[in-house]
Design a protein around this nucleic acid. Sequence first.
DNA 1: AGCGCCT
Length: 695
Amino acid sequence: MSWDFTGGRGGAGGGRARLPSYVPPHLRNAPVANPYNAAYGYSPYSAVYNAPGYGQYGGGGYVLGGQQDFAPRGRGRRGRGGQRRNEYESSSSPSFADAIAEKFDELEVLGEEEAAGGGGGGINFEAYDDIPVKATGSEVPPPVERFDEIDLGEGLMQNIRRCKYSKPTPVQKHAIPIAVAGRDLMACAQTGSGKTAAFCFPIISTILKNGLNSGPGGTRTVAQPSALILSPTRELSCQIHEEAKKFAFKTGVRIVVAYGGASIQQQVSVHQSPFYCLLPLLVLLVNSVVHAHGHFAAFVWWHIQGSDVGLRLFNSVSFFFYGICCVVQLYNLEKGVDILVATPGRLADMIDRGRVSLKMIKHLALDEADRMLDMGFEPQIRKIVQQMGMPPPGQRQTMLFSATFPDEIQRLASDFLKDYIFLSVGRVGSSTGLISQKIELVQDMDKRSHIMKLLHGQKANGKRDLTLVFTETKKGADALEYYLSMSGLPAIAIHGDKVQMERERALRSFKAGVTPILVATDVASRGLDIPNVSHVINFDLPKDIDDYVHRIGRTGRAGKSGLATAFFSDQNMSLAKPLVELMKESNQEVPPWLNEYAKNSSNIYSGGGRYRRYGGGGGGGSRHGGYDDYRNDYSGGGYGGYGGASYGGYDSGSYYGDNGYGGYAAPPAWSGLGGGGGGGYELGTEAVVASGWDM
DNA sequence: AGCGCCT
């Protein structure tokens, strides 16, 4: 094993020989500092991967390395419950973590000015002033103006300060008191307004208050998280995991992420290796280091994410820890997890295999909840929530978050909730005014030349200005990536047909500004928080207006402004009307031709969207203006499915809940250690693949 | 019909 990640590649240019630093393939042998001028050698087509320069990709690393799959985080010794663990924490591992935290906080003080200037956590709160808020339901807890009005626990409060969240965003002001009160919640808030923290804070806080779930004691091979957070894409789950780790820094709350893309088998086999017997020793030796690093990494990365040099350095450093970390985390999985962040498919699979039990779940959060409950996902979610041993509504807290919440979906969701509060913050899905929306009439055949004009026009803006381009299909994304690349523009594509490693590589490369153009399908449309996306181009418009809202929400985040350009073609007639309504709501200038289309098409296309299956459908159009609590639509008749609800079908969990599956040694775990990326090239592509998420 | 989501 070599630590020289640049080996055989001709290095990364002068002066870097000593420090392992990752250089993207297409920049090797090129002047490092100028990605724009670098010969852009990457192509989506497999032939290129087989070229010599990509040898390491094809090699063993990826195949056997698998990827981050199940990544327990935190320190060891779950022992016999909270007490025991706290004891452990205070005596052993925190010493190092404390030292780091202290250093970190010192650094914080020094860097205060800069961060306030828009780096770090600087949120432009003025952008959120004076936005309408609606909260409906019984006995709604009043909002707070400051985090310290609620007793969230000292550890969490300290982390909130570390994150520089000096003041809650509107959705946080309202959602946190509701959630801390233990109420069920359906929350609808603008993109980029801090929803993740809104459900993470109460979960972490409550877990700290109630003590960590003690489990059955003795040997436990089944993870029993007390909170479950589901999201519709792997990348979003990673991102939530990274966020949550920052919030749980040094609190002892363990957060694990689980998503697909690698086989479970290979991970189980690690347990059978001779190495396994060394694990306890290794854990004792390096646990504190790794733990501190893991959490610290999230903070560090958060602060240096804008820096290309920082990225490389960080990748190298964390790769060193990574090798150790993987081993430790394998061991830790069976020690328990408090908060599990997962995508539905992998979670259901793990439950089936008896590796995870939901019977201790106290909090359930669905991020992008309307997506999770639409046609494609709803059966899976229903299975997980209702048939896999999770306590029923009333015995758990359920929180649904999204920027959009169609009535049909609200109706479905009420099955999962009990006596919930509906919270609506802001008028439409997008952040009013922050995102400047332009619609251009471009027919399909003209789209390529048109996007070239746009991109060349902004090329001079500098590499920190990222452009996110959405296409309708995966093929379309690949094709456009290829076209742009061939035309000399540094673009990279991300979609669900790429293997996970490529997906993460694309995202990392985009975030770092190495390939400042990302061509994406809807895999990237929801939830992803990518700083410095200044322009979203809807190369193909989505069929559903809500998808449009989420897509353009990738820019204009945290109070910054952004531009969204859409190519409107004859294929998009059905979108004309809702699009016009949306733009009027957000005070955007509507092109006259689009207004015409909207008038003419309104008779032809009435309902629509992907929700039509759910019948009812309401009056079709104008619910944009903010989503309302659908319960209010029923002036007379009883609330249908809402309320007490019949949980007759609920399976109390005997199949999954108990310990009958002890035979499964627990697993695997490739850590979500921050950056990870670079090193993978040489050694374990594990690092690349496993690299959690670069936040 | 197109995205996503366990092997």
